[in-house]
Design a binder for these strands. Structure first.
Lengths: 127, 127
DNA sequence: CAGGATCCGCGTCGATACTG
DNA sequence: CAGTATCGACGCGGATCCTG
């Protein structure tokens, strides 16, 4: 029974890992982020996220399955399907926004570090 | 010049997407999480995370390149290399911890939603 | 112990075509 | 409009071998 994956006694890593497997991918995060200010239609999300129809479909299905978004089907012509964050999904807004905030605040620093690293590498190569 | 990827006018999505591409993968998050309470040696991380040597190596290299962790090489015999969060890496602790907290708090709800979804599906299939 | 190099399966993702 | 089904390309990630 191999339970010792991460920090051993604490085992928080497994939980994090498991949750990350579910909502940790880029599209899920972005869908949730985009859904933060209300319900959206399928193609609306598709356009705004510039995501393939396949991945959006899969992502939304998984998010619905995991209880993070709810699906509202209007059987009209043409069909109209809207997606909305559930309460559980709403509770993810905070973490996602914290991450988003960090991303916006620090991506410049990352780029700078990257450039510095590459410069150092080039110099080492030249020397 | 196709700049309109996400929310159009806001364009936060691109930034988030870009940052997620860098630090959004599972291993990076877990390494940062594991490094939260101090520096660790290579094989120490390897064991605790149950990660292959290859992925740990790649992950650490990228993390170092992006200025999130620093590498301390002790040229002894046997060699000893320690990794530690930089200030930038430290600043990521908060977002990661918020996410970790959410993961711990809500993974049960996700599992429940999942089970409910599957049950509903099975019933639909049976009916 | 730390980690580079190589090989390779497997899952992910996009493009395309089709349905209701 | 809102998907599903299929296919093919690509990259992630593990296993293995080798060096310093």
């Amino acid at each position: 029974m191999p339970m010792q994956s991460c920090s051993g006694s604490q085992g928080q890593c497994q939980t994090i890992n498991a949750v990350l497997s579910r909502v940790g991918d880029r599209w899920s995060v972005l869908v949730i982020f985009t859904l933060r200010d209300g319900r959206r239609r399928f193609n609306e999300l598709k356009r705004e996220l510039d995501i393939s129809q396949r991945m959006l479909s899969l992502t939304l299905r998984d998010l619905e399955r995991d209880g993070l978004v709810s699906r509202h089907y209007h059987q009209t012509i043409p069909p109209k399907v809207e997606y909305e964050l559930t309460d559980l999904g709403q509770s993810l807004r905070r973490p996602v926004e914290v991450l988003a905030r960090w991303a916006v605040d620090n991506h410049a620093a990352i780029d700078a570090a990257r450039d510095a690293f590459h410069s150092a590498q080039d110099q080492a190569g030249a020397a």
